[in-house]
């Protein structure tokens, strides 16, 4: 492991890369991830019929349940999840440990 490899401190989300495929949700051993999504039809010029795409509505990780195994990151087929070095996200209450897509995507660029 090189020095630049992030520690297992926080999981960052890149919402644009997420296709709501649910692989991470189903593989998570501690059931700490939940994903809300819906299907939209996208019409493309020249296409015979509209394409259906999954649109991510909400992505939540409950850090009160997460055991930092990293299986979600390993299994994500689209590299929408990654480790980041930050660790200062403690909370005084249980709900504060639930991070939504906005919270999780904030870790992505720098991890701080």
């Amino acid at each position: 492991m090189s020095d630049s490899t992030p520690q297992r401190n926080v999981i960052a989300l890149l919402p644009e890369a997420c296709t709501s495929c649910m692989v991470c949700v189903r593989e998570c051993p501690s059931w700490c991830i939940s994903v809300e999504s819906h299907v939209e039809e996208v019409s493309e010029e020249g296409a015979r019929r509209p394409r259906t795409v999954n649109v991510l509505d909400e992505f939540t990780i409950d850090y009160g349940l997460c055991m930092y195994c990293g299986i979600c990151i390993e299994t994500c087929p689209f590299d929408a999840l990654a480790w980041r070095d930050s660790f200062d996200y403690s909370s005084g209450d249980r709900q504060g440990l639930r991070q939504d897509a906005v919270d999780l995507s904030r870790w992505w660029p720098t991890g701080s």
Binding site: T19, S20, C21, M22, V25, R26, C28, W31, I33, S34, V35, S37, H38, V39, N54
Partner: peptide, 18 residues
Amino acid sequence: TPWPGQKSATGRRRQKLP
């Protein structure tokens, strides 16, 4: 406990068990 993986993106409930 309700399994978060039960849902699919299309909203159809899957029969698959956790």
